[in-house]
Design a protein around this nucleic acid. Structure first.
Length: 419
RNA sequence: CGGGGCAUGGUGUAAUGGCUAACAUAUCCGCUUUGGGAGCGGACGAUUCCCAGUUCGAGUCUGGGUGCCCCGACCA
């Protein structure tokens, strides 16, 4: 991509009421822009990151045998009344009426829709287990949006639903998903903590659920974490146990940690299958409700969390798998013909290797501004070419997350990048 | 939903109730410059969120509305 054509106007200043650092850089770098409170547009850079995250999630979901579907966002009122959630859902549903005055909800989650979809296709124990997921826009009528992308009213979510004969089989899959989640977050550059939580309006309070949390100074969640064994629990589950010993390992004490919730997995039991009539016939010919689980990751929030965790004073530091580009090619003084020729040659060569390169071909930007933009956008590897480096037949390589600068012979650049 | 704050060129900010609403930045033109947001000159750009009111006079004061931010409550 040629940077002069990239739709990204980086900003030097943002409104002072933006406190959240990661969010500030997403705005400054022109990854996203706000349309209304809790509602965001994604610009080319932001969308690229979002898509990278989406692809990681899709790969991991496919690898645990889940099939992708795409469900309706407009959902009839009656469906929500059958599970008694039309009025009880929290945060509230966005509700609207069609031309015939019929009520609909904009989907904030899809237990109802997926359950009746499954009902048509799961009747026997032979049809089980099954796992379906989608990556789709959700709408939530939040009372208050916060932290940029961290809590929005419209966002893309990956929601996975699993269907089982028995609680035991669900538990097995539950663990599999939990592992898959840790892997997803790892690939996104985050160390996630699995924390015990409560289900609220999704699973019912009696079912146990896990949240996946990432440590962040200004995260809005709080968990108690055991420094010894890594066991964790949400603040809401246990009040006033700071300093108490971990109930699991009994050795270390629990410490209160601020976190951002980046994923949540629920055991649903038979709540939805009973309410909506999803039953199967077992080997003995007995009719039983299907046991369900559901598992969610908010993609925008995950992106916001990454920015929140990985940045320095100059901008975001994207990890390799989620970065909008893998290489940032930055010529200094591109009006110099030798600099230009070499840069363009390198750009072409790298593209042939299917490297995702952002080439800063802008002539009217000073070196300072180009370098500042590079730090802000946060592509993992920066390649600087200038008269100075070309005197040594070299280009300069710098990792965004490191201080060290390395000179590499122009001819050896490609082999060097492979290693 | 309770409490608080804010609203001024594209963006960020300034302006005792008083003259033509100021500055920075961005953008455009010219010259110059090229390793950490360069310099000089010029240009473009605002119904000061909306509606009432007080006043000789309102960006500024009062009332109402709308929007945004923060704290709390709530929360996948």
């Amino acid at each position: 991509m040629i940077q002069s054509k990239l739709l990204a106007k980086t900003k030097k200043k943002v409104a002072r009421d933006i406190r959240n650092e990661g969010y500030k850089f997403l705005i400054k770098g022109d990854f996203i822009e706000q349309l209304a409170s809790g509602i965001y547009n994604f610009l080319p850079l932001g969308l690229k990151v979002h898509k990278k995250i989406e692809e990681i999630i899709r790969e991991e979901m496919d690898s645990i045998g889940a099939q992708e579907v795409f469900l309706a966002a407009l959902q009839p009122k009656e469906l929500w009344e059958r599970t008694d959630r039309w009025n009880k859902m929290s945060p509230p549903l966005f509700k609207l009426r069609d031309l015939h005055k019929k009520y609909f909800a904009l989907g904030s989650t899809h237990e109802e829709v997926i359950t009746i979809l499954a009902k048509e296709r799961i009747q026997s124990y032979k049809d089980l287990p099954q796992a379906l997921y989608q990556i789709q826009t959700k709408f939530r009528n939040e009372v208050r949006s916060t932290g940029g992308l961290l809590r929005t009213r419209e966002f893309v979510m990956k929601d996975l639903y699993s269907f089982h004969q028995t609680k035991k089989d669900l538990d097995k899959y539950f663990d599999k998903v939990a592992q898959s989640y840790q892997k997803i977050f790892k690939r996104c550059g985050l160390n996630s903590i699995r924390s015990e939580a409560s289900g609220g309006t999704i699973s019912g309070k009696e079912e146990r659920t896990f949240e996946f949390q990432v440590k962040a100074e200004n995260g809005e969640d709080k968990i108690f974490l055991c420094a010894g064994c890594g066991w964790a629990v949400n603040l809401e589950m246990v009040q006033g146990k700071i300093g108490a010993n971990c109930p699991k390992c009994k050795k270390s004490s629990l410490k209160k940690v601020n976190t951002i919730e980046i994923g949540h997995i629920f055991s649903l039991g038979n709540k939805y299958s009973k309410a909506l009539g999803l039953y199967f016939v077992d080997k003995q010919g007995k009719k039983k409700p299907v046991i369900m689980g559901c598992y969610g990751i908010g993609l925008g929030r995950l992106m916001g969390a990454i920015a929140e965790v990985h940045h320095d004073s100059r901008g975001i530091i994207w990890s390799r798998e989620v970065a909008p580009f893998s290489l940032h090619l930055v010529p200094i003084e591109i009006s110099n013909s030798k600099v230009r020729k070499t840069s363009e040659k390198i750009y072409q060569d790298l593209q042939k290797e299917e490297k995702e390169v952002l080439y800063d071909d802008r002539e009217d930007k000073s070196p300072g501004e180009k370098l500042a933009d590079a730090d802000l956008i946060g592509i993992p590897i920066r390649i600087v070419i200038s008269k100075r480096t070309l005197e040594k037949d070299s280009v300069e390589l710098k990792r965004r997350d490191k201080k060290k600068i390395k000179l590499v012979k122009t001819k050896e650049l490609q082999t060097f990048l492979k290693s």
